[in-house]
Design a protein around this nucleic acid. Structure first.
Length: 293
DNA sequence: CCGCGGGCCTGAGAGC
DNA sequence: TGCTCTCAGGCCCGCG
């Protein structure tokens, strides 16, 4: 499911019941997700207090007092929900549990806050891994990640620079987590639309030529900032299975202008074009050929 | 090194 | 109703 705004929404949802709380008991209910759990996975979690819950790209990172960090990735279909103590017996319990597929509840953290934090992932493309904080820099999963799109160092100059030598489309470049870390198929389509740039455009054309220094790159960075900030504000996008950790739906999907809108009229004022869809690098691209150049 | 296509999984929805 | 096919928000890997 999740791109950066959904992961950030999950982080904010988990924070109150995780931060400052101790993991009294951890359950890994099968031996693997995408990868096998580490042999000592449960042992390294139980008894630890979560000092902080952060995010890097699409990863959640729980800082443990032991000096370990618990890395969590939601893959395509991963989600968390939080059961508060009160919920377990109260009528509200039904609200959380209705329609939930318990068969895919793979990991459960029982917290000293009274909350049970449940990781559910039907497709099991998600994973969790514990690494020592002082080995973060060497962690292969994190090593190649580019800048945070909402961080200070991500700007037009940097984006243009990292695209300069690319021999691929702008769409593929933005999906490449080494270029910028946290965008996925939906938000790339939406950002390109808002920047009025074609997904087919060569990534290298963002680089400065004569005159117009990185005008396209500036537009794109602004579009990426806007789309991510707006989506986070809306609690992410709920297609299929993404929910906030309290069970509520995000609602940014209503603000999509091109994603999954093939055949609809282009929403850009005065454009009059039609949203098209085609496949790029194995993923669906949605765009308006008339106003994205 | 780079870019691409295949594969990993399950479930939802379309079409027959 | 039920079967089969396609597609899905991600990312690792092997190939050329």
């Amino acid at each position: 499911m999740p791109e950066l705004p959904e992961v950030e929404t999950v982080r904010r949802g988990l924070q109150p019941s995780m931060e400052g709380a101790k993991i009294l008991k951890a359950e890994a209910r099968r031996k693997d997700l995408r990868f096998p759990f580490q042999k000592d996975f449960v042992a390294r979690l139980e008894g630890q207090t979560v000092a902080g819950l952060g995010r890097r790209a699409k990863y959640l990172m729980a800082d443990l007092t032991s000096g370990d960090v618990l890395l969590m990735h939601l893959g395509m279909s991963g989600s968390f929900r939080v059961l508060k103590d009160d919920d377990r017996n109260a009528p509200g319990h039904f609200h959380y549990e209705r329609n939930q597929d318990r068969a895919h509840d793979h990991v459960i953290f029982h917290m000293s806050s009274g909350a049970a934090i449940i990781f559910n992932d039907p497709r099991r493309f998600g994973y969790m891994k514990i690494i020592p904080r002082n080995a973060l820099e060497d962690e292969p999963l994190l090593k190649g990640l580019g800048p945070e799109p909402l961080g200070n160092e991500f700007d037009a100059a940097m984006l243009a620079r990292s695209c300069a030598n690319k021999k691929t489309s702008l769409k593929a470049a933005l999906l490449d987590q080494r270029v910028v870390a946290g965008l996925g198929n939906i938000y790339v389509c939406e950002a390109l639309f808002r920047a009025r740039l074609s997904p087919r455009r060569l990534a290298a054309t963002l680089a400065t030529k004569k005159g117009e220094p990185a005008e396209y790159a500036r537009r794109l960075v602004t579009a990426i900032h806007d789309i991510l900030n707006q989506a986070i504000k809306a609690g992410g996008s709920s297609l299929r299975d993404h929910r906030q950790t309290n069970g509520e739906l995000g609602y940014f999907q209503h603000s999509f202008r091109v994603y999954d809108r093939e055949g609809e009229k282009c929403p850009a004022p005065g454009c009059g074009g039609t949203i098209k869809r085609f496949t790029q690098n194995g993923r669906s691209t949605f765009w308006c050929p008339k106003c994205q150049k």
